[in-house]
Structures are given as C-alpha cells and as structure tokens.
C-alpha cells in the first residue's frame, strides 16, 4: 500500500516497544489513518474571495511603501537642532515609519502565502542519516585504502612524531597572551592611602574637618590627590571610603582599633568585600550598611561585620586622626586588602 504504512512497520516495531496485547484478529496498534482530506479555502473556490485577498496583500505592500517614504521624510524632515524634543520626535517618527515599512511588508508577504499560494500539504521522504551497509563498507574501504597509501600504520615513527607535533603546536598560542597584562604582584592588596593623607569629599573635593560631620552624617571620601593619579579609576576603585559619624559609645572597637575613630567618626572601605560594588547605603538609625548589588549588610557598630547576605569578610577600616587644624587624615593605609576576595588574599 502506501509509503506511510511501510514506514509505520519499519518504525513501530522497534526493540522493546512491542506491546503484546493483541488478541484474536485485532491489530496491536492503531494504523496511521493517513493525511486528512484537503479543506479548501474560500479563495480556492470563490474568485471573489481570491480577489479580496489579492487586494489586501496589495494594500499592505502599499502601506509598506508609504512607511519607507516616511522613514526618509522623518530623517530629512524632522529638524535636528540638538534639542531633546526634536531627538525624541525624530526617534519616534523614524521608528514608527520603520515599523510600518517592515511590518506591513512582512505581513503582506505572509498573507499572500497563506491566502493565495497553494495550501495543500506536500510530502518529502526522509532517509536515515546512517548509510546503508554497502555505503558504510565502501566508506571503510576507502578510508582503509587511504590509510594504507599514507603508510601511517607501517611507519610508527611518523605517526608518533605527527601526534607530538600536533599536540605541541597550539600550546605556544597561549603564551602570546603573556603581555596582555602585568602580573598581579601586590596591586590587589594595596591602595593609595598612606599615613598623613588627607580625606577629601567625593566628588566635590576639599578636606574635611571632623566638626563638619553632624551626628548621623555620612561623607563619601577619596584620598587627597587622587585626581593626579595616572590611572584615576583604578585608584578610585580601591580607595573609596565612607565616613560616618555615630554616637561614640555605640562603637565597639576591637583591640588595637581603639584610637582608629575620631569622636565617633569612623572610616570604612566603601568597596564591598564580596564583589566590589560600592557599599554606600547607610541607614543612620540601625547603623547598617547595605550593598545595592547583592544585599550584603554590614554593622558599623561592630566593625562592619557581615550580618546578612553573601559577603564573608568585614569591611576594612581606615584608621583616622585629626591634624592640628581639625582636618581628618589617615593614620596609615588599610591594614588588609580591600574589595573582592582573590586566591592569594589569605
């Protein structure tokens, strides 16, 4: 009978799928009933409907043409005088014209295919990917013949050196990348903070007096002279500091850190010990610092220990003092690496 049935036989009896349920003369499995009868569209039988579809497609294509013209009109016609209203208008005008031009063309083409091109289903036959036994034998024979001709099996010296050369040649490629960057050295562990360096306001600049900060104040800080650094952003990425003023009795400095604060003013690294975002959301009532990237939360009253979220280490504290005129300066650099963890960090 049909291809379909033969195909069904070939396939349906795969290993392990025979359902031994047949009884009497009843088939074990239903048979594929074959394609349903073709249902004609209105346009196939009614020339009026076909003409209507033809007109619809033509209207869509005309709309697309109008859209294309409108794109040119919007690009040339909308005055581009550097005012934002005009930029906004131009973006909308060009964009909507593009929509009309492209969308109407697409819909027109699809509508044409759907309504007027033949819609009776056609059939292609598949072939297994795997070759027939004869084809496979022939392929094996060819490969074998070629291998013999090359003599690679008879000449192990060539075979082995070929493998060696093949394995070795790509490896030097990696070494070409050697000068893509310097070795880390101790760059990850150091910042530009040094003893006596003044704290200045970020981004405005200018030294800060201890008396500038009221209770509950916070000031974003950069070391003085950061704008003169060769790589400003690199320096900023490590040196950003947040200065906060709390009631001095709320602070619980650990041993060795007793004199790191000035009248309840503490300075902590603003770079998250998790992934390096600026931890700058200071809640002055709870004294919590929140990182906006992954919600690590640090408690300023407990030396910025982590109290929530994915960070592990406390924010490093910058020891500060005041000079004779009352300006804040660093007692020293950070005593540990700031920012995200890395393998050699220890």
């Amino acid at each position: 009978m049909s291809e379909i049935e033969r195909a069904g036989d070939a396939h349906g009896q795969g290993p392990g799928t025979t359902l031994a349920r047949g009884q009497g003369g009843v088939a074990e499995k239903f048979e594929n009933p074959g394609l349903p009868e073709h249902r004609h569209r209105m346009g196939d039988t009614d020339p009026k409907a076909a003409r209507r579809a033809e007109r619809q497609v033509a209207i869509l294509l005309v709309l697309s043409m109008i859209g294309s013209v409108l794109i040119v009109v919007s690009i040339i016609g909308v005055k581009y005088d550097g005012s934002f209203n005009q930029i906004s208008l131009s973006t909308k005008a060009i964009g909507l014209s593009m929509f009309l031009s492209l969308f109407a063309l697409g819909v027109g083409a699809v509508h044409w295919a759907k309504t007027l091109m033949p819609d009776d289903e056609r059939i292609d036959y598949r072939h297994r990917q795997r070759g027939t036994t004869a084809e496979r034998d022939q392929a094996v024979a060819i490969l074998k013949e070629g291998t013999d001709e090359s003599g690679i099996a008879r000449r192990p010296l060539i075979r082995n050196t070929l493998i060696g050369a093949g394995v070795l040649f790509p490896i030097p490629a990696v070494f070409f990348f050697r000068d893509t960057g310097p070795l880390p050295g101790d760059d990850l562990s150091t910042t530009m903070w040094r003893e006596g360096m003044y704290l200045t306001k970020d981004p405005e600049g200018g030294r800060i007096r201890a008396s500038d900060l009221g209770l509950g104040s916070v000031v974003h800080v950069m070391p003085e002279g950061i704008e003169d650094q060769e790589e400003i952003l690199n320096a900023k990425a490590k040196a950003a500091v947040l200065l906060m003023r709390l009631e001095p009795e709320l602070l619980n400095p650990g041993s060795g850190r007793e004199d790191w604060a000035v009248d309840g003013i503490v300075a902590y690294s603003k770079i998250c010990t998790h992934m390096g975002c600026p931890v700058a959301l200071y809640e002055q009532q709870t004294h919590h610092l929140l990182c906006p990237c992954h919600q690590s939360t640090f408690d300023v009253t407990r030396e910025c220990k982590v109290i929530f979220g994915p960070a592990k280490r406390a924010l490093p504290q910058l020891p500060i003092r005041v000079d004779a005129e009352g300006y804040l300066q660093a007692q020293s650099g950070f005593h540990e690496a700031v920012g995200p963890s890395f393998w050699e960090r220890g």
């Binding site: 306001k201 800060i208 007096r209 008396s211 500038d212 900060l213 009221g214 209770l215 509950g216 104040s217 916070v218 000031v219 906060m244 200071y282 809640e283 002055q284 009532q285 709870t286």
Partner: peptide, 10 residues
C-alpha cells in the same frame, strides 16, 4: 529616619 544627614558643611 534611615537617611543619613547631609548638613551644609558636608
């Protein structure tokens, strides 16, 4: 509330 103080000196 939670917001820190930004006085006229800061």
């Amino acid at each position: 509330q939670s917001m820190p103080v930004f006085n006229d000196t800061t």
